[in-house]
């Protein structure tokens, strides 16, 4: 395969990854990195470098659409970004010191856990205002069914903050947005309504990824000719995904995607163990 064919195939694959990532809410990176590494035999460092750049593109590119819907909460996002950016710097530092096999194994485990999390959906349980959410001004409202504004508070700020440190570290180590872990922290631990969690998470992903970008660039993980088609493909795919989301049977799609990601995860772990990455 020459550069032109390779680039076109990568562009198409990245578009598909971005599309599936945005439809299922897992993000483009989770399928992109295994695709580049396992299918196209791209070195794992280049794969996570290209993925990290595409993560920023997706987050910034779709932000305008999410803002219009009025779901995201700037204060919660900003406060938790202290944790994710510190985590991301640490994660990127770890990436430069972890053997490739180790990164592959951790990646596989995170994939499995992300799939598990997407099936752990529970009903929103709106928590009222309390001491911490008042003090940190994290209470908010969002448009509920029928356009009625629903008011919510926030619980377990400390636990959420600690989990975000972990989410940031994984993002920096693996070059993914780690949206699933961010939603875990906000939705499951802090009891923030699901729609608010997912849109705020999307906002945070770009800032988190930017915090590891400097280290990735200086370590030479970002190859220009590889990152360009990946970044453009994932962005276009995720924008298409956001548009057709309402017309797609997300439940069925999520099941199919989960099966695909499960096998990718197992293969990443297997390749990591036998050292074939």
């Amino acid at each position: 395969m020459n550069e032109l064919t390779f680039s076109l195939v990568i562009l198409g694959g990245s578009l598909l990854a971005g599309l599936l990532g945005s439809l299922t809410g897992l993000g483009g990176g989770v399928v992109l990195v295994p695709m580049l590494a396992l299918l196209f035999k791209v070195d794992l460092h280049y794969a996570i470098g290209a993925s990290l750049i595409s993560v920023i593109a997706t987050s910034s590119g779709s932000a305008a659409a999410y803002v219009r819907e009025g779901f995201s909460n700037m204060r919660i996002g900003m406060f938790l970004e202290i944790a994710t950016t510190i985590g991301a710097v640490f994660g990127a530092w770890l990436a430069t010191r972890t053997p490739t096999r180790g990164i592959a194994i951790v990646f596989g485990v995170v994939l499995l856990y992300s799939v598990y999390l997407t099936f752990q959906r529970h009903e929103d349980e709106i928590v009222g205002h309390n001491k911490w959410s008042d003090r940190l001004k994290m209470n908010g409202t969002y448009p509920g069914p029928g356009g009625k504004e629903i008011s919510y508070g926030v619980k377990h700020v400390g636990g959420g903050f600690a989990t975000m440190l972990g989410a940031g570290t994984l993002s920096g180590l693996l070059g993914i947005g780690s949206g699933a872990v961010k939603v875990l922290a906000m939705d499951h631990i802090m009891r923030i309504p699901f729609k608010v969690s997912t849109t705020t998470s999307n906002f945070m992903i770009g800032v988190t990824a930017a915090a590891s970008a400097g280290i990735y660039l200086r370590r030479g993980y970002v190859d220009p000719a590889l990152s360009a088609p990946v970044m453009i493909g994932v962005l276009i795919g995720s924008l298409i995904g956001a548009r057709i989301l309402v017309r797609v049977n997300v439940r069925a799609l999520r099941t199919v995607f989960a099966v695909v990601v499960f096998f990718l995860a197992v293969e990443m772990i297997y390749n990591g163990i036998i050292g074939k990455v």
Binding site: N2, D43, Y46, L217
Partner: peptide, 12 residues
């Protein structure tokens, strides 16, 4: 040209 992304050479 033939791509060589399977070998990490640092893009720096």
């Amino acid at each position: 040209a033939i791509p060589h992304y399977h070998i990490f050479l640092s893009s720096l």
